[in-house]
Design a protein around this nucleic acid. Sequence first.
DNA 1: AATACATATGAACAAATGTTCATATATTCA
DNA 2: TGAATATATGAACATTTGTTCATATGTATT
Lengths: 97, 97
Amino acid sequence: MKQEMNENILFDVAELFKCFADSTRIRILYSLISKERNVNEIADLLNMNQSAISHQLRILKDAKLIKKRRDGKTIYYSLDDDHVYNIIAQGIEHVEE
Amino acid sequence: MKQEMNENILFDVAELFKCFADSTRIRILYSLISKERNVNEIADLLNMNQSAISHQLRILKDAKLIKKRRDGKTIYYSLDDDHVYNIIAQGIEHVEE
DNA sequence: AATACATATGAACAAATGTTCATATATTCA
DNA sequence: TGAATATATGAACATTTGTTCATATGTATT
């Protein structure tokens, strides 16, 4: 990590971490570590309504943290990036100390 | 990372990431990677007023991401944890792709 | 003790954010 | 084509959040 850092990059990093900074979104991401899931499955798992989950999935998708795949009526979401797992793992390590 | 995850832990992880999810705070943390700094130094560096920085330092302190050391009138802040560096580094890696 | 310097804090305000509700879009199947 | 299922979206609302302003606290120096 170089000494002089572009302000814009740190701004983007903050934007990225916003995705991990909400318990709904982080539970969604965590649930996708083991396997891909569709929207209603996630909603059931988190015991939240489908609309709330859809809104959050869009945020995660825009941030390129997850990707989608359609199979008939169903849309499956999965993690899109290795960093996602690593960042969550670091976070868990920190809070578990 | 184990399969069944305590909901509370993920909640705490989200709380942790909130610290990294604001550009003021992440610029503060980034500025502390190279060396400890006092409050006014940080305020000058980020071109923000002293009060705003103090408020954010308190949040970072409460989250145990930074620690303080008094030397006379001056209080020096520094990073309190290895994970801080690692989490920021992962974040930068992701956005730089 | 009085002044100056460094930092912290509380209240107020504006801006950003997450959820809900109602409804729209897309796909499948009878 | 029409009904059923799965997902997406926009508006509204309440809550949270970050900054500013004024002021308080703590320390050193004269």
